[in-house]
Design a protein around this nucleic acid. Structure first.
Lengths: 149, 149
DNA sequence: CGGCTACTGAGAATTATTCGCAAGAACCTC
DNA sequence: GAGGTTCTTGCGAATAATTCTCAGTAGCCG
């Protein structure tokens, strides 16, 4: 079962080999946003002979090819996640360091408008929210949010 | 003529000396968001004997004390600006690398609401818009930020 | 004035990441 | 399936931004 990411790589003219497959598999399975070291750690569980250089290089190439997305959380390291076409935002829980993903179309709209008011067209943006759990429950019950790292 | 920033420093229990005054003056006069190297360059015009260590250290301390704000524009360097109490956003022109500042209360509102919907209270956020003048460029291309500013 | 501490300069150390190069492997062509 | 071009890999060295160490210096408060 050739996975989805592997197929996309081939479509974009990237060569495929077992090391690259291992890296792709790690990111395909990841439920979080691992940094390079963490990807390396996971990757070496499958193939201890892979080098950190290769991980750095491959992640960079895959991000440039749009197979992965590079995210930065202000911790001085690059984090990667599988690229998806649905834009989503990241909220970092100040207390636990956990990263929540959520979607909110209004954000993109507001930002696009703000850029527009300056005569610009928004191409891309970097956004991270730092927040703390509200002391009081809001009584709206379970919100379905994927908890990630 | 003791400047405003210097006064704030004293209020927060920071010691004052001529080197620190020079750094403060540079940031007080700055109309942009200089990175550490750039601050160092400007500072050495007044006092060539100041060291880059001191610039790094002082900028960090001043930012922690809330006298300055540290901003990151995705170019891998820290940039500093005088801290102000009015929240403002940054838009990076991807063609020129120029950084525009603007105010837009709607942005903060939307972000605060988004956090609220997740049960969180927004404490802080990092936001950078990358955009091109309406007329120019098309599509979501590579984003490269140039030095300076 | 005197002392407790914070501040400074210089260079070494750290951290994250990229580069250079030679060897090895994909993939296209015939 | 052989061959060759070009991409990929591993390793260690190189960068780049930033922090740390440490000894010497100097604010600031009493």
């Amino acid at each position: 079962m050739t996975n989805r990411l592997e197929r996309i790589c081939l479509e974009r003219g990237l060569r495929m080999n077992e090391k690259r497959r291992v890296i792709l598999r790690v990111l395909d399975k990841a439920q979080d946003h691992p940094c390079v070291d963490e990807v390396y750690r996971r990757v070496t569980e499958s193939d201890p002979r892979i080098s950190i250089s290769t991980v750095y290089r491959t992640l960079k190439i895959l991000a440039q090819a749009g197979v992965l997305s590079r995210v930065e959380f202000g911790d001085g390291r690059a984090h990667y996640e599988e690229a998806r076409d649905d834009r989503h935002e990241h909220l970092i829980d100040i207390d636990t360091g956990k990263v929540l993903e959520f979607r909110n179309g209004a954000i993109e709209t507001v930002l696009r408008e703000a850029a527009g008011q300056l005569g610009y067209r928004l191409l891309q943006y970097r956004l991270e929210l730092f927040a703390a759990l509200e002391a009081t429950a809001d009584g709206f019950g379970e919100l379905h949010v994927r908890e990630r790292d």
